[in-house]
Design a protein around this nucleic acid. Structure first.
Length: 290
DNA sequence: CCAGACGTTGTT
DNA sequence: GTCTGG
DNA sequence: CCAGACGTTGTT
DNA sequence: GTCTGG
């Protein structure tokens, strides 16, 4: 599953990765090494013609920017119709806006049931396919005594992770705020020992199919939602991640205590697991010492 | 027809 | 809004 | 996802 | 136990 992640890209970095310099709701942009549900983060999405009408005011703002933008965007593999739209993590049912909420907001959506569930199918049919670009995400596993929840940070060695999301703008009407939920799939072998589910991660060359809702059908796009086949790096993270009040780059790495460092001459059960079952497919993060 | 639910995760 | 159950 | 709160009355 | 807030 995915209930916490790291988003630490500067606006420049994100613009380079996503291939657009167009923003919506940019004033809510912020970075965090401990992003929790209900936080605002940028989602890459495509303008649909209807949305363009709605968002004309924003369009004008964009055009005031230097022209070199158009040139740069044109050089990217994808078109200039993308936008970095800062939205709230957590999808409220589109039918109950400020009514007595029986249905709760959802931070995850199972890929297998996207079409069965109204809550996700309706926004998807409206073209609500987006991508969340992150540095990595966290998963928790209870320790042997089932007492503590230990966090792990999952990432790839070079480059960001691209999570497939469903977004919904129906609540916003004239406003520019949206909401999104992260799609989940079965866990890749690399992380299956941690959790049975994880976010649906896209390869860079799949982004265009997922994002271009005009060119590529929903049916076609859904075939992309499979466990990632590439290498994922898993490293133990600081338990300070558990509290959403904590933030900082140091959260993604675990610092051993002196006793643990001394004891580490004998392999831990996790290291045993890595050396036996998942061997060459996974990357083990180096634990940092004090 | 109307009434009522509508989600995922993890844990038991 | 839309589907399910009765 | 985890952490932390979880209530009403009456008084200031 | 369950809901809310972050």
């Amino acid at each position: 599953m995915c209930g916490r992640f790291v988003f630490a890209f500067s606006k420049d970095e994100l613009e380079n990765i996503s291939g657009t310099k167009r923003w919506l709701n940019a004033e809510k942009y912020h970075t965090s090494y401990n992003v929790a549900p209900s936080a605002y983060v940028p989602i890459v999405r495509t303008f649909t013609p209807e949305q363009q009408v709605k968002e004309q005011v924003e369009e004008l703002k964009v055009k005031e920017e230097p022209q070199e933008q158009d040139e740069k965007v044109a050089n990217k593999p994808f078109d200039a119709k993308r936008v970095l739209h800062v939205m709230k993590w957590g999808l409220q049912p589109f039918w109950s806006r400020s009514v007595s909420n029986t249905a709760k907001t959802c931070v995850n959506a199972r890929s297998e049931t996207l079409l069965e569930k109204n809550m996700f199918r309706v926004p998807l049919k409206a073209g609500g396919r987006g991508v969340l670009i992150v540095n990595g995400f966290y998963e928790w596993k209870k320790d042997a005594e089932e007492k503590r929840k230990n966090p792990y940070f999952i990432s790839v060695e070079n480059g960001p992770l691209y999570m497939a999301v469903v977004y919904d703008l129906s609540k916003e009407k004239s406003s520019k705020e949206g909401q999104f939920t992260i799609i989940t799939v079965d866990a890749s072998p690399c992380v299956a020992w941690l959790h049975d589910r994880m976010p649906a991660l896209l390869e860079p060359n799949q982004l265009d199919v997922w994002l271009d809702t005009k060119k590529f059908s929903l049916e076609e796009a859904l075939t992309l939602l499979r466990p990632l086949e590439g290498n994922l790096k898993v490293q133990q993270a600081s338990r300070r991640v558990n509290s959403v009040r904590n933030d900082g780059a140091e959260l993604i790495s675990y610092k051993r205590t002196r006793e643990e460092t001394d004891r580490s001459t004998s392999q831990s059960s996790i290291e045993n697991f890595f050396s036996s079952s998942s061997r060459n497919k996974c990357t083990k993060g180096n634990d940092m010492k004090e």
